[in-house]
């Protein structure tokens, strides 16, 4: 089974994760720009982070046979921070044109403040200008209200619904989003938010169309193998292979595919080329091993 993992923060994961993910069939990863666990105090740290996810992190994934892409954006938590918000908006246009950047994200609402709304709408405009889809983070608290508010904002902005992925959904939010023409994302976590068993139930009820699942693996208690584990749960529940492939391969590719050739389906047919003689910024994933043997 080929898997496109459409939401994993590999920046905060180790090489063992890449190895296990590749062995479990994960052929491509999309890494949304996000909050790093504590607030940044200047735009320079965003620049370095953005450079890392288009540079070193992409290289690191490739060294394990995985194609790496990302989305760029000002996350809602730091949209509230005047030390960085305007400056990050100013640097985004150059990053939104990078080859490996497939969308604007993750953006959205968290505490649901006026500032979050301002920068959310500003980034919807950037997505229009750069002809990119948007990956939207939804609030962990007061989620239903946050979903409804974001849907209203998107509708008012005139942004096409089929280019919207509303992430971190659950049994409640799918009732709101199922008929809107947007993509519904579900982050499957160990013990919280959404688990494989509940995901199977949702998919039984609503089908595979415009559904996307991910692990949202990050620096917290999370599991980068939860997409392949959910595939097994779906298989056990009697879903045919074609339906599972639609969920974990076709849907995310169709969503992130766009004019201009940044995501080449044909290229994804093969694992990324592993060449451990290569380096990025003088660095390699090897620690003294002979690149010709390891």
């Amino acid at each position: 089974m080929r898997i496109f993992e459409p939401h994993a923060h590999m920046f905060s994961r180790v090489t063992d994760d890449y190895e296990r993910m590749a062995l479990a069939g994960i052929r491509a990863i999309l890494e949304p720009a996000f909050w790093l666990g504590q607030n940044r105090t200047s735009v320079g740290t965003f620049i370095d982070y953005f450079d890392t996810i288009i540079g070193w992190e992409r290289f690191r994934a490739q060294q394990f046979g995985i194609h790496h892409f990302c989305t760029m954006g000002l996350n809602p938590r730091e949209a509230n921070d005047d030390r960085v918000n305007d400056d990050v908006m100013a640097i985004l246009p150059r990053y939104l044109e990078k080859d490996s950047v497939l969308g604007v994200g993750e953006i959205g609402l968290d505490d649901q403040t006026p500032k979050e709304e301002k920068y959310f709408l500003g980034q919807i405009e950037l997505a229009k200008q750069h002809e990119l889809p948007v990956l939207i983070h939804t609030p962990h608290r007061d989620k239903k209200k946050g979903f409804e508010r974001m849907i209203d904002l998107i509708k008012d902005s005139g942004f096409p619904m089929e280019r919207v992925l509303l992430d971190h959904g659950n049994e409640e939010t799918i009732k709101i989003t199922k008929d809107l023409g947007l993509y519904s994302g579900f982050s499957i976590y160990p013990h919280t938010k959404m688990d494989p068993r509940r995901m199977v139930s949702i998919l039984k009820e609503y089908g595979m169309e415009r559904m996307i699942i991910n692990s949202a693996a990050d620096w917290g208690i999370s599991d980068p193998l939860l997409v392949p584990k959910t595939c097994i749960a779906l298989e056990q529940a009697g879903f045919p292979d074609e339906a599972i492939e639609q969920l974990v391969w076709d849907n995310p590719i169709t969503f992130f595919e766009q004019e201009g050739g940044r995501l080449d389906r044909a290229e994804l047919e093969k694992p990324a080329n592993i060449d451990r003689r290569e380096t990025w910024d003088g660095n390699s994933v090897l620690r003294g091993q002979d690149p010709e043997k390891y």
Partner: peptide, 11 residues
């Protein structure tokens, strides 16, 4: 140039 440069290979 910073916005145009990344587009050149794919365009």
């Amino acid at each position: 140039l910073p916005v145009l440069f990344p587009q050149l290979p794919r365009r």
